[in-house]
């Protein structure tokens, strides 16, 4: 593998326009059952039961949770999928 000096790799442009990740947030609601929310996280994201349950508790107790991080288009696809399941999700830049 060729080695390139960092100064050549990091031009000012790439540092000014970083690949800022976006996040998909799921918000708490009083209607969806906790078991169902857990199931959706397992089924759609392929998360383990443990991780899905922990995210569900975050949603329930903190009012929302970041369920995925990545490019904007993927986060929009995830939010739409959540809406198809009846969960309330939004997309935003990861600040």
């Amino acid at each position: 593998m060729m080695s390139v000096a960092p100064s050549e790799l990091e031009s000012p442009e790439t540092r000014l326009a970083p690949d800022t990740p976006w996040v998909c947030l799921v918000w708490n609601d009083p209607i969806n059952l906790m078991s169902y929310v857990t199931y959706v996280f397992m089924q759609y994201f392929g998360y383990s039961r443990e991780k899905a349950e922990s995210l569900m508790w975050d949603v329930h107790t903190k009012g929302r949770a970041v369920v995925n991080t990545g490019g904007r288009e993927q986060m929009e696809r995830d939010a739409t999928a959540m809406h198809e399941y009846g969960l309330w999700a939004t997309v935003q830049k990861d600040d």
Binding site: E76, T80, H83, E84, G86, W88, A89, T90, V91
Partner: peptide
């Protein structure tokens, strides 16, 4: 509004996203 929720906090982005995706979400449901 609960069945077809906004995907962005920002009303302009939400409206734009809704314009592109709402019909399909309705159709899926």
């Amino acid at each position: 509004a609960r069945l077809l929720p906004d995907a962005y906090d920002d009303p302009e982005r939400a409206s734009e996203f809704r314009r592109l995706t709402e019909s399909e979400l309705r159709a899926t449901k």
